[in-house]
């Protein structure tokens, strides 16, 4: 628990409130009609109000501060997002089965190798590797059967991201 008067929680609340306030002010220079902006203004107003309440609670009741989760690490979020996007791009361009196999195989081979090196159990590495690759093939085939053969999912080539 932080003993500072102004913690990261209050700072984040303030930042969101300032951004929403900026958006709220911007709506007055927008070309949209007044009624078109009615609900967006409510939305931005709520974010401003919520952010201010978070800030006030942070300042007035520092004892009640709930610590932010430390489990969530941004580089992993970016990495996983990029991997998912790359897989989405790959299955449209190199085929669903190939992309799925590669996506799973690369990840599982790397994890199996890392585990073998960490625990020094290279004797089992080949067996684990064979099992994981077989599983990757099985998943790729099932995915192909469900989404392409059965559901006839449309997969146009889209080389550009």
């Amino acid at each position: 628990m932080s003993t500072k008067r102004f913690s990261l929680i209050g700072l984040t609340g303030t930042l969101l409130a300032v951004m929403a306030a900026g958006g709220f002010v911007w709506t007055f220079s927008s070309s949209l009609r007044r009624m078109e902006l009615f609900v967006p203004r409510i939305a931005l107003g709520l974010v401003v109000f919520g952010g201010i309440l978070i800030l006030l609670k942070d300042i007035l009741n520092p004892g009640e501060r709930d610590t932010l989760s430390r489990d969530w690490v941004l580089p992993y979020a970016i990495g996983v997002s990029l991997a998912m996007w790359a897989y989405g791009w790959a299955f449209r361009n190199i085929g669903l089965m190939t992309a799925t196999f590669l996506f799973l195989a690369i990840w599982w081979v790397w994890v199996a190798y890392r585990d073998a090196r960490r625990t020094g159990t290279f004797a089992r590495f080949r067996v684990t590797l064979a099992k994981r690759l077989a599983l990757a093939v099985a998943v790729a085939v099932v995915v192909q059967l469900i989404f392409v053969t059965l559901l006839r999912m449309h997969l146009p080539r889209t080389p550009l991201p």
Binding site: G13, A43, L44, L46, V47, G50, I52, I54, L56
Partner: peptide
């Protein structure tokens, strides 16, 4: 505050 902020988003 968090509930209102979440609803606003």
């Amino acid at each position: 505050g968090k509930g209102i902020l979440s609803a606003g988003i």
